[in-house]
Each structure stands twice: as structure tokens, then as C-alpha cells.
Design a protein around this nucleic acid. Sequence first.
DNA 1: GCCGACCTGGCACAGTCTGCCAATATCGCA
DNA 2: TGCGATATTGGCAGACTGTGCCAGGTCGGC
Lengths: 224, 224
Amino acid sequence: MPTAPRPAALPRPSLTERRRAETQLEIARTAAALFTERGAAVTADEIARAAGVALRTFYRYFRTKEDAVVPLLAAGVRQWIDDLAAPAPDADAPSVREALERTARRSLTPADEPAAEALHWTRGLLRAMPGDPALRAVWHRVHHDAEEALVPVLARLTGAPPLEVRLAAAAANTAMRIAVEEWAAGDEAPDDGPEGPAALVARCMRALTAGLPQLEREAEAGPA
Amino acid sequence: MPTAPRPAALPRPSLTERRRAETQLEIARTAAALFTERGAAVTADEIARAAGVALRTFYRYFRTKEDAVVPLLAAGVRQWIDDLAAPAPDADAPSVREALERTARRSLTPADEPAAEALHWTRGLLRAMPGDPALRAVWHRVHHDAEEALVPVLARLTGAPPLEVRLAAAAANTAMRIAVEEWAAGDEAPDDGPEGPAALVARCMRALTAGLPQLEREAEAGPA
DNA sequence: GCCGACCTGGCACAGTCTGCCAATATCGCA
DNA sequence: TGCGATATTGGCAGACTGTGCCAGGTCGGC
């Protein structure tokens, strides 16, 4: 994860560090813009030039061409998990399911400009994915990492045995992924419609953590 | 999907076709062997030479280097979905959940040599994945395709609305993925131990489709 | 025996990604 | 203010990936 995990107590990220972060974000933005409009056809050199850096520099910021969009795609998920991991300040402890749903909602309701921007680019990139397998691979890698990061958090929150924790992490992560995918596939013009991503993720989270009653009904055999 | 979808009613796959399939499987085996022992370091040229074909020929069978192992990784999943899609012959229609669990079990209980071999290589490849992101990407791509293939099948079986169907497909697919991953991570010497993949997938499927009660319990806040 | 379809291999080439070195900017310290 | 330590940047060479193109070989039908 390229986003620096600095101790959060330093008011001065050392100026050089800030420039670095700014450069990285600038490359990410450029890459996202190019990918959304031309798909897999864009070359690493193009991204680098458009972002105003040399090709060699680009590869110092990102290991692969597609990695350039990871900061944008991972922003929401990262905030979600961090939020979930933070001990609830004053709210009396709800069930873990409620905590998952609440934090997921919050992570999909952009609070500041960067969050809104990341969500916007995520939508654009998701729409470009059907035609670009490599881009889809990044999306799945982001969620694979999220699933792994979710495990220790849920282990602490539930105290359940390892396999159950993994399944819970996978279920929660899947709810988040599908909610965002479905939202991005929809065609509401502005970024927030009647069925925004936050509302969707709540429905998905509830369905996946509370069980899928549709599967228990007797199978109504259709025609051959 | 490289595996040819021929009509199943032809006893003669045309000899040339058989040679082709044999060559493809041979390349896949070779690639799996090399990947399991040396990880991402193997080159496409090595795989091709070891399989006895030219580099150019290798790329006629597979679009990318890692794609070479897809026939092995996808075999089980493919059989699972086909089995689920086939109308139950004589058994009285159980719930969809039971059908999912039963077919999943069956797909992880190798019936013939090729199935056992695919499972064996899958295990080896999964163990090589932590050190090889590209290999992990193939694994996730296989499961992404499986999730998509599952949607129409579950739509027919349940008659549920689109979003619920997608969630059910994702849940079932996740159960399968995690069961195999956990089985591969275990250290039972032979291919089948006390907790084989079939038993594991049954547990995972039940947990993910019937709900996760652990998440509903009050969160027992641990120490800060 | 000839012809067309297909598989195969070799070659050239654009693109990806890395190692190495020189030039430049920044920071800490005297 | 000036100097050395450190870090960022860019250019270049090179291995590897993946594709288009063309030539040679095999198998089938006419």
C-alpha cells in the first residue's frame, strides 16, 4: 500500500514527504483519467508524461502500470477498515453486524473532497473494467488485501474461531465490493442518486451477514 | 475459457482436437510444476521449452504466462457450476442451499484421475501464491468468472431479484474459494486428510448462506 | 497426387519493468 | 553562509512479455 502509514501525531510530514504524496496522487489522478477514457490502450509512458514525470520516476512510485490507480480505489476501503478498527468512542457497543454496516455506510458517504474524488474515480474505473482485465485484477487485489486486513479486526471484535472470522471478513468485504460495483453500473447522472452507494452497501451487508433466505425456499423448478 | 465447450454428444473430438487438448493440458501441467517450485521467477520461454513447444506456440494456447494454469485451477469450479446447472435427475428438489452444498462437496471429491490431478496442482499453486501476486491474480480471476457464471444458474433456481441473486452467487463462490484456500494452507501430508476439502466447503457454505451468528452477538470490547 | 485448412516455429517489434549511474534538490550541522 | 549526507529525479541499457507476419509441415478431402 503506497499510502504512508505515518503515526498521525506529526503535524509536519516533512515537506518532502508532502511533495511525494502530492506527486503520487497526481500520477494516480492522471492514470485514472486516461484509463477511464481509453482503457487498456494507454501506455505507462503516456501516464508518466501526462503527469509530468519521467517513465523511470513513475516506476519508482508504482510497481506496475495498473498499480497507479490503487490509491484511488483503496481509499474508501481503507477508511472503512480503519473506522471499524477504531474503538467506538461514546456509542454503546452495538452488534458487530451493526458496526460493519454503520462504518461501511460512512465510508461510502464522502466527508471531504479527497473522499468524494476517490469515489468518483472509482466509479469511472469500474465502468472501464469490463474491457480491461488488468484493471479488474487491480480491483480484486484491492479487495483481497481488504479481506486480509479485516481478519485481525474482526477477530478482536468477535472473538470467534479463525475459520468463522475469515468467513465473516470475506462476507463483509464481498458486501462492500458488490455494493460499489452495482452502484457504479447504475446510471444515475450525478454521483449520488436515490439509491446511493451508502444505502446499497447497507442492504448488501445485511443480506450477506444475516443469511440468504431465498436459498432456503424450496426450489421452484422452472421449465426444462 | 480455453476448455472447449463442445456439445457432449460427439464421441469423436476429431483427433486434431484431441491433440490440441492434450498439448494444452501438457503445457498447463508443466507451468504448474514450474510455478510451484520457483514461483514468479519462471519465464514463459522456460515453460514453453519444458513443455516441448516454441514460445510462439505457447502464446497461441494461452494469452498470458499465468493463464497457463487456468485449466487446472478452473476445473473444479467449472464442474461444480455445470453440476449445479444440470437439472437434478431423480432426487426430489431440495432447497437451493442444499443443492449448492451437495454439488460443491462433489466437485471437491475427485471422481477421476484428471479431477484429482487438478486438485493436486491447485493445492501446490495456492501454496506458491503468497510469493507471487500474478498467480494470485489468476486465482481471483477464475473466481470472478465463476461468480458471473453462477448468476444465471442461481437466477433460474431461486427466481429471486437480481441483487439478491448476485449476492447469493458471491456468497456461494466465496464459500468455495475460502474452503479451498484453507484446505491448501493446512498441512495434511496426503491429498485427503481428516478435514478434506469437501468437508470444509460444506461448513463454509452453510455458514455463508445461513448467516453468521457470531456477528449478531454483543461485541465484547477487549482491552484498549 | 493435388489443394486447402490448420498447427507450428522463427523473426521483428512495441511495450513493461529493473539495475545502474549521474545530476539536482533538500536537510542537518557547523 | 557553506559543506556533506541523504533522497529524488532522469536517462540508458537490457531482460522479459505479448503480437503480427510469414514460411514450412501435417492432415483431411477432391
